[in-house]
């Protein structure tokens, strides 16, 4: 829960005692607001069944993409079928070697579910296989430059403690 919501909840509890209803006042506009008594938490279950090999790759320290066996199109994020030619015969290839940093940013104002992280750097790298990868950049932010050489690295993301891929300046 955000600080904003916590404060509102306190005010709503006060109001329930006094008025009987959870009515809070917006301090700027002085409008009366009903503080929702129902809270919705969502956590999705997203299927990765057909791209399981990607996570096997991550487990072995590799970032894998798929390549259409028929037309040669490469997909990252990996795809189990080819949107281009319609084939569902795909090979797995590793995205490796030296890539180029196309652009980057620092996320200063964070979404609720990322608010426990310090400011993080996100970049997009073009890999020698011809596809781009978007990921956090691990390294000295002050030294980043568009066009610099980078590679991919698999590393643990804490505090969640799961493996994911990073862009690392060379």
């Amino acid at each position: 829960m955000s600080d904003e919501t916590e404060k509102l909840e306190e005010a709503a509890e006060e109001s329930k005692k006094k008025l009987g209803s959870p009515i809070v006042t917006d301090q700027k506009t002085l409008s009366s607001l009903w503080f929702d008594q129902r809270e919705l938490n969502v956590r999705y279950l997203v299927s990765v069944e057909k791209i399981k090999k990607f996570y096997e790759g991550i487990s072995a320290g590799k970032v894998m993409a798929t390549k259409c066996a028929k037309c040669g199109e490469i997909y990252f994020p990996p795809q189990s079928y080819c949107s281009k030619c319609g084939s569902d015969s795909m090979d797995w290839i590793e995205l490796s070697g030296t890539g180029e940093l196309l652009t980057y940013t620092v996320i200063n104002v964070k979404p609720q579910s990322f608010s426990h992280y310090p400011d993080y750097v996100v970049g997009i790298a073009r890999m020698p296989q011809g596809v781009n990868v978007l990921a956090w950049i691990d390294g000295d932010t002050g030294k980043l430059k568009v066009g610099m050489k980078v590679r991919l690295e698999v590393k643990k993301r804490d505090p969640e403690g799961y493996l994911t891929y990073w862009i690392k300046p060379e």
Partner: peptide, 13 residues
């Protein structure tokens, strides 16, 4: 995985 925001996406541009 990467917590992009709307300003973040445009910041890449």
């Amino acid at each position: 995985n990467f917590g992009l925001t709307f300003p973040g996406y445009y910041a890449l541009y």
